[in-house]
């Protein structure tokens, strides 16, 4: 059973799709606008597939797909649109869609594509839970002009290559996974160090200082790894300077 988010502002279409997907045994949630869809995907429980209309009021489907990918959410996205020109299709794929279906579409084709995407997603999750060195995709994260390779614990910055320690990489990965959200020192202690007693949190601060030396252009004026006074830290991968 998979959870599918249908983002469609035309009520008739949304309800028709919901009926058919539910008949296929999926759990379906509806979102009427790009903004509500993004909020839902950011917060709530995980979704396995997004059926995304392009022409939405306000923030459109291209925008939603792009934001999802930027947040590091790689769930399958099936775009639906009234515009079927080559340039629209290309734009959809460039924004991060996995498949593209022009309206009006055949119901059986729609269902087949949804099931196909869900199948691939399921395979991918199985692969990730049983990692084999040769099949697993490289575990990398890039932001600004830097790339972190979590497999080899390396940080690349242009020609520079820097070796991270296991603990540094673990902390960095935790911050990356929760980017855009403020992470408290207590949470880091519990989740990264896996200690639950009231340990001194200064160790974390030292690690943060070190990480900043690696990933900030100016460690005294951090842009990516910002301190939230009195709470903790927040990783902001999109904060690179304009131009």
């Amino acid at each position: 059973m998979s959870t599918i988010l249908v983002v469609e502002d035309e009520q008739h279409l949304a309800l028709g799709l919901q009926f058919n997907l539910e008949a296929e045994g999926h759990v379906v949630e509806l979102a009427e606008s790009g903004e509500t869809a993004l909020e839902r995907l950011k917060a709530g429980p995980p979704v396995d597939l997004v059926v995304l209309d392009v022409m939405l009021p306000g923030c459109d489907g291209f925008h939603v797909a792009r934001d999802l990918r930027q947040w590091g959410l790689f769930l399958p996205v099936l775009m639906l649109t009234a515009r079927g020109h080559a340039e629209d299709v290309l734009r959809g794929f460039a924004a991060g869609a996995d498949d593209y279906l022009p309206k009006p579409f055949e119901l059986s084709i729609f269902i087949a594509r949804v099931n196909g995407l869900l199948r691939r997603w399921e395979w991918m999750r199985q692969l990730q839970s049983t990692p084999g060195p040769s099949v697993r995709p490289p575990d990398r994260f890039s932001f600004g002009d830097r790339v972190i390779d979590f497999d080899t614990l390396e940080l690349f910055h242009g020609e520079e290559r820097l070796q991270l320690t296991a603990m540094e990489a673990r902390l960095l990965r935790y911050l990356v996974q929760h980017h855009g959200r403020t992470v408290s020192r207590k949470e880091i202690l519990e989740e990264v160090w896996e200690v639950r007693e009231d340990t001194d949190t200064r160790a974390i601060d030292n690690f943060i200082v070190r990480l900043r030396r690696y990933i900030e252009d100016d460690p005294t004026e951090p842009r990516y790894l910002v301190t939230v006074r009195g709470v903790g830290y927040r990783f902001e991968p999109d904060n690179h300077s304009p131009g």
């Binding site: 008739h12 279409l13 009926f19 058919n20 009234a82 309206k103 009006p104 579409f105 055949e106 059986s108």
Partner: peptide, 18 residues
């Protein structure tokens, strides 16, 4: 107009096939 034309057509087709 493309959107306004295709949306109801897509909807009618979807319901007929359903």
């Amino acid at each position: 107009v493309t959107h306004e034309l295709k949306t109801p057509i897509a909807s009618i087709r979807l319901y007929l096939e359903t």
